[in-house]
Amino acid sequence: MPAAITVSLEPAAQPEVIALIEALDAYQIPLYPMESHHGIDMAALSAPNVMFAVARDGQGMAVACGAIVVGPEFGELKRMYTLPSHRGQGIAGALLARLEAEAHARGVRSFTLETGYLQTDAIGLYERLGYRRCGPFGEYVDDPNSVFMSKIVN
């Protein structure tokens, strides 16, 4: 990760962060049918059980974001996105590590995520970071457009 990048927990409801989430939606919405979209909205990202992290460059610009929704059984990774101009620099890994560390400090030991099968770079990142494919979890149902992954941290 570039030295100038910082990752911190921040509110999701900020103009720069909203722009990142809109860019994520603009990318994903055309790829999958609506019933295969499982993003959460700004109100849900602002809930007390959600940890939201933002990666910022040396000028303070938001370049990546992600969240973990902490539930009674697991923490679910949501809304991970890095600007295309900043990919391949280790930012997403640092962002995910920060989120996992914060959730782990709050007692979360099991992490889950759902992503689209066309997100091969994201799937590769998650696999490199210890996530393994699994079946649907929580309220998800089997979906050929979805890849479900989980990770246990002691």
Results as ranks from 00 to 15, higher is better:
85 S>V: 12
55 A>D: 00
97 A>P: 04
87 R>T: 15
73 E>L: 10
14 Q>L: 15
82 T>D: 07
98 R>M: 12
141 V>F: 13
150 S>G: 10
9 L>A: 11
88 G>H: 03
141 V>P: 00
1 M>N: 03
126 Y>M: 13
115 T>W: 04
132 R>H: 10
12 A>T: 13
103 A>M: 01
144 P>L: 05
68 I>A: 01
19 A>Q: 09
77 L>E: 03
120 T>P: 00
49 N>K: 09
152 I>D: 02
11 P>A: 15
36 S>T: 06
109 R>K: 13
73 E>S: 10
65 C>R: 01
60 G>N: 11
77 L>H: 03
25 D>E: 11
113 L>E: 08
29 I>C: 02
147 V>M: 11
18 I>D: 04
59 Q>M: 02
57 D>S: 01
1 M>E: 12
103 A>S: 12
149 M>A: 08
37 H>Y: 07
73 E>T: 11
147 V>F: 01
140 Y>L: 12
148 F>Q: 10
131 Y>F: 14
45 L>S: 11
151 K>Y: 04
153 V>L: 14
144 P>I: 05
23 A>T: 05
82 T>V: 15
6 T>Y: 01
10 E>Y: 00
96 L>R: 02
85 S>L: 07
31 L>A: 14
83 L>M: 00
138 G>Q: 01
50 V>P: 12
112 T>V: 12
18 I>A: 02
140 Y>R: 13
36 S>R: 03
35 E>H: 08
9 L>M: 08
148 F>Y: 14
72 P>H: 11
139 E>S: 15
113 L>T: 15
67 A>G: 09
139 E>A: 15
124 G>L: 01
150 S>E: 14
122 A>Q: 06
